[in-house]
Structure formats: structure tokens, C-alpha cells
Amino acid sequence: MESGYGVGIGWRPEIAGFVADLPGLRFVEVIAESVPATGPAPGLAELRDRGVAVVPHGVRLSLGGAEPVEPARVRQFARAAELLDAPLASEHIAFVRAGGVEAGHLLPLPRTREAVDAVVGNVARVQAELSVPLALEPIAAIFDWPDDELDEAEFLTEILDRTGALLLLDIANVYANARNRGTDPLDLLDRLPLERIGYVHVAGGSASDGIYHDTHTDPVPQEVLDLVAELSARHRPPALLLERDGHYPPAAALRAELDAIAAASGYPTVT
């Protein structure tokens, strides 16, 4: 993603009016599976037509599934990118179904070479259909598999190297995983290929059951904003996007979160 997109926000129907009114907005993201074959929702089409970049973000491809990604899903994903005139598209390093059963959520992969092979194969199948670059997002995992062969940085770097994909780094996931595993989030930032970042996700969460949950329905904690600053000091990403998926706060609170991300990354405010 070319530099200068700055701060964006995930477009959702519930906050379409708020998003449309952001004067400095240059990019948004939309859930790829929500884009109808007949074309995007009117509000989204208006944003696209006024020059706001719209990035489709897939959540159901199951790139990390052992079985090949379903061709119909790949076609729908690629078509969404075309309908949106997107500069790139993104999906997760995760699986969401197995054995014909839907998990209903993004699940972590074992960090094994067999899992790397599965992801690489599926990414190649998607890239064959997709006319724009693909960015891959590591997820927040509440639990890990028992037999990891690679650590997180090795696992991600190998996938990026073998696929040529961009990295969609979710800084809130970096925070959540480090906090829940008792590791240092800066360690991971120091070991990831930050120059491969296509864009960054920023989101809120909350703690319960002794676990920090990446909910997207709570405010962005200061610790996550601090990581945005740490990341930007190392290698400022070309774009950062606020993800909010429910319990929408008053407009002033959302504007304040966008401004805080701009301040932490050194980009101009979009509000």
C-alpha cells in the first residue's frame, strides 16, 4: 500500500454516516464476504468514487485450513477487490472450519512446517485469482497448539517469504498475544519484517477470565497506542486502520480514538 494513506477506519453499515463525514479520510476496509456480487453498498460506493481506497478484508477463506481453499470463496473474494477498485486485499493466517464443521471464529494454526505448507498452498490459490497484492494478518490466539516447531516470528516470516505476500500487522493482536503468553511485544516487533507491512490494524479489547480478549467492541487501550508509537518509531507503516465491530461509542469517542492513532503514528488527523 503506497505511503500516505494515513489513518483509516473499518467501514460497517452501523457507522456508515460517521465514516462518510470524516473529512481527511483516505482509506477504509470492508468485510469482503459482505460485498454483494451486484456491487458495494451505496455509502461505500460513494467513498470509493470520491477517491477513498477501499480494501476488502476476508474472514471466511480459511487460508490455514488443511484442505484447499474453496474456489467459490476465492472467486467472491477476488470479485470484491475488483468491484471496490481496491489497491490490495487481506485475509488471516488462520482456519475457520475443518471436517465440514464451521468454527464460527478465526482459529490459530499449529506453528509447524506442515501448517506453513498449507497456508502457502492456499495463498497461491488466492493470488492466482486476485488482481491486486494480498496482505496476511496474524491473529490473536487465546490458546496455542501443543507442538509448535517454530516461534511466531519464524512462522510468519517463512509464510511471507514463500508467498511474497504483504503483512497486515494487527498491533492489538501483538499486544493480546504477548500479554496472554507473558512475552514482550517489542521482541516480536524487532523480529518481524516491518518493511513488508501493507497496513496495520488497531483495535480495542478487554480482560476477563484472566485473558485479554481482542473484542473490537471496547476502547483502544493506552498500551496498544504505545505499541503503535513503538512500531512507527522503528518503521512507520504506510497506513493504520481502526477496527470497531459493535457497541459503537458516541461519534466524539470514535473521533478521539482516530486522533490518538494519528498522534501515536505521526500521521495527520482525519477527523
Partner: peptide
């Protein structure tokens, strides 16, 4: 088991 078998077993434990 294979990755596919292990993923299926985990999903079954999680939701079924």
C-alpha cells in the same frame, strides 16, 4: 494425525 485430522478434532472439541 494429519493437519486436517487435527484441525477437525480441535473444531469438534470447540463447538461440537
Amino acid at each position: 494425525g494429519t493437519l486436517g485430522e487435527r484441525q477437525a478434532a480441535l473444531v469438534a472439541a470447540l463447538v461440537a
